[in-house]
């Protein structure tokens, strides 16, 4: 599908790679996170989620909170919430993660993706954005325990996608970020940014098919 891209080539890449969101934060005098040494991989987050689901493990929750709560807070601030509201809302999102741990499916989403969807929905209430109806639920049965191999592959695809996003030219990445923070119309955004969405789509298709088969 062809959508007009902004003339990326004419935009000189900044020497220091800070996105528009990063700049906005600095303008407002906010501290962003420093460099973390050795970020755990997506698989580790999944293991922590399953420990919450199966054992109500508070230490696992604390580890996920330390990593993700600041990220949710940052996301909400970039979307226009002030620091106090964003902090309160990040608390809500993390409480939802604890309460809905049984709904997390590692063959369909990474932990980061799942948290993004919770934060997005919370943002709609918070900033009084337009309502966003959900599709019909997928049939969910007792046999729908996700396949381990599917889950592993999906988590790997998610990491690959993240790496690809990081490697994008600054102008393209900025455009995508602005689309998700909600201050740009999507007709401006190219779906053709070279992100490896095809593989992740087929992964998810596989998980959906499996789910539907389990219900037959």
């Amino acid at each position: 599908m062809l959508i007009a891209l902004e003339p990326i080539d004419e935009t000189p890449a900044p020497l220091l790679a800070t996105g528009s969101a990063g700049r906005a934060m600095k303008k407002a005098g906010r501290r962003t996170l420093g460099k973390e040494e050795a970020t755990p991989d997506a698989g580790e987050w999944v293991r922590l989620m399953l420990r919450i689901r199966d054992e109500r493990d508070r230490a696992a929750f604390a580890a996920l909170f330390r990593h993700f709560a600041p990220r949710v807070k940052g996301f909400l601030m970039k979307s226009g919430a002030d620091a106090a509201l964003a902090e309160e809302c990040a608390q809500d999102v993390m409480t939802t993660l604890w309460n809905k741990a049984h709904l997390f499916d590692p063959s369909r989403a990474s932990v980061a993706t799942w948290i993004f969807t919770i934060a997005r929905n919370r943002r709609i209430d918070l900033l009084r954005r337009d309502r966003r109806p959900e599709p019909e639920d997928l049939p969910w049965g007792p046999e729908a325990e996700p396949d381990q191999e599917d889950a592993l592959a999906l988590q790997q695809e998610s990491e690959r996608l993240r790496a690809a996003l990081k490697a994008l030219p600054e102008a393209q990445r900025e455009l995508i970020e602005r689309a998700y923070w909600g201050d740009v119309s999507h007709s401006e955004i190219a779906a053709e940014t070279g992100l490896p969405l095809g593989t992740i789509k087929s992964r998810i298709r596989l998980a959906l098919d499996r789910l539907r088969h389990a219900m037959k």
Binding site: G74, F75, A109, T113, W114, F116, E157, S158, L165
Partner: peptide, 10 residues
């Protein structure tokens, strides 16, 4: 998943 990847980075 793109949203998840973006949220991870900052």
């Amino acid at each position: 998943a793109v949203g998840g990847a973006l949220i991870e980075d900052d």
